[in-house]
Structures are given as structure tokens and as C-alpha cells.
Computed example of a mutant assay.
Amino acid sequence: MALVLALAPGTALAEPLRLVALGDSLTQGYGLPQEQGLVPQLQGWLRAVGHDVIVINAGVSGDTTAGGLSRLDWTLADRPDAMIVALGGNDLLRGIDPAASRANLDAILSRLETKEVPAMLVGLSAAGNFGPEFQQAFEAMYPDLAATYDAVLYPDLLAPITARYRAGEDLGDLMQEDGLHPSAAGVEEIVEAWGPAVSSWLRTIEASEE
């Protein structure tokens, strides 16, 4: 005998929230087995605390803010319910003028606002390699743009690693041999620190859709 589940008129099965992570190699999971990358670990963490969410990996290794902007429409074609914007690391490594990076992120957030896609902007801390003015301009663009577009801000994706670096502690267990990309253990620490902020943001989105 077949078991038939009848839905009341107007009732639909809830679908998982589709969260796109637009980023570079840090998002893409460079140098790690797929299941140990940032997106799978974040998805697992969010599901473990009760979110019905699919985190879609839109990270491209080597991408700058300009690259992220250039593929934004293609990414939006996936019809996300929300988007994490985690770009700027390669701009920083290449010493790209922060004014150009700011303009690209501004255009991304403006487009998301137009499309009514909630955004979380994820920043990075900058070392002083290119001078204090560069450092200040780079770090300031994230909170400035988040405030302009009412986006949720997470100031530093690499916060646990940054904290240990500034404390003069060894980073060997958290970083891959290239010294640029986190190891699986490093990603785990990043997600443990970042997860609560993402979870809180998603709960506001989920509540608004009820």
C-alpha cells in the first residue's frame, strides 16, 4: 500500500536557504580536499546548529574584487537567497589601489541591493607593506560600504590567524606551506569564529521569510 502525503491547499515543502559565497581562493578552498574547504566546513557548521541551508561555492582562485564584479550577474543567475561577499585578498597582495577595490565592492553591493539579496561583507586586515595610508584605506572600505548598504559586516575572515600572528605565535598548524592559505585546521578555526555571526544573520533572513 502506497503512503501518500497530502498537502493542504497553498502549502509547499520548505526549500533550503541558498547562500552563495562569492570570493577568491580562501572561499574556493585552495590546496585542500573538497570536504575540508571553507564552504563545506561552513555549511556543516550551520547545519549542525539548525540551519536548513545550502552554501554554494562561488570562490575563484586568484580573483580580485574586479573579477568578482565581472561574474556577479552569472552568480546571481543561481537565484541565491543571500550572499557572502569575501573579496579583497588578491587586491591586497597585488597592492591594487584601495579606491579601485572600494569601487568594485560598491558596485557589487549596489547590485545586490537592487536585486534585494541580503549581503554579508567579509573584510580582511591589512599588513603595513604598502604604507599606513594604504592600510587605513583598505581596512576602512569594508565598514564604510557595509554601513552604506546596510550589509552585515564581518571585519576579518582570518581573525583567529590574525590574532595569533599579532601575538607572535607559530602559525604552522593553521597555514599551508605557501604561508597564504589556511590548512584544514585553520579553516576549522575560521569557521568556529565566523559561524555564530553567519548564523545570527541567517536567522534574521529566515525570520523575515516566515
Rank of each mutant, 00 (worst) to 15 (best):
residue 73 D to W: 09
residue 73 D to V: 12
residue 78 D to H: 14
residue 80 P to I: 08
residue 84 I to W: 07
residue 84 I to A: 07
residue 85 V to K: 06
residue 86 A to G: 04
residue 90 N to E: 01
residue 92 L to S: 02
residue 93 L to P: 07
residue 95 G to W: 09
residue 95 G to A: 02
residue 95 G to R: 06
residue 96 I to C: 02
residue 97 D to R: 09
residue 97 D to G: 05
residue 97 D to L: 12
residue 98 P to V: 10
residue 99 A to E: 14
residue 100 A to L: 14
residue 102 R to Q: 13
residue 102 R to H: 15
residue 102 R to V: 05
residue 103 A to V: 05
residue 103 A to E: 13
residue 103 A to H: 09
residue 105 L to N: 06
residue 106 D to C: 12
residue 107 A to Y: 06
residue 107 A to H: 03
residue 108 I to N: 01
residue 109 L to D: 10
residue 109 L to R: 09
residue 109 L to G: 08
residue 110 S to E: 14
residue 110 S to L: 13
residue 112 L to V: 04
residue 114 T to K: 14
residue 114 T to P: 04
residue 114 T to Y: 13
residue 118 P to T: 12
residue 119 A to P: 10
residue 119 A to K: 01
residue 119 A to T: 00
residue 119 A to H: 06
residue 120 M to D: 02
residue 120 M to G: 07
residue 123 G to S: 07
residue 124 L to D: 00
residue 126 A to D: 03
residue 127 A to C: 11
residue 133 E to L: 13
residue 133 E to S: 05
residue 133 E to F: 12
residue 134 F to V: 06
residue 134 F to I: 02
residue 134 F to T: 05
residue 136 Q to T: 13
residue 136 Q to A: 14
residue 137 A to V: 08
residue 137 A to N: 12
residue 137 A to Y: 06
residue 141 M to F: 10
residue 141 M to Q: 14
residue 142 Y to V: 01
residue 143 P to V: 01
residue 144 D to I: 09
residue 145 L to P: 12
residue 146 A to F: 11
residue 147 A to P: 02
residue 148 T to Y: 08
residue 150 D to F: 11
residue 150 D to W: 06
residue 153 L to C: 03
residue 153 L to S: 05
residue 155 P to H: 05
residue 156 D to I: 11
residue 156 D to K: 11
residue 156 D to F: 09
residue 157 L to F: 15
residue 160 P to L: 08
residue 160 P to D: 14
residue 162 T to H: 07
residue 162 T to I: 04
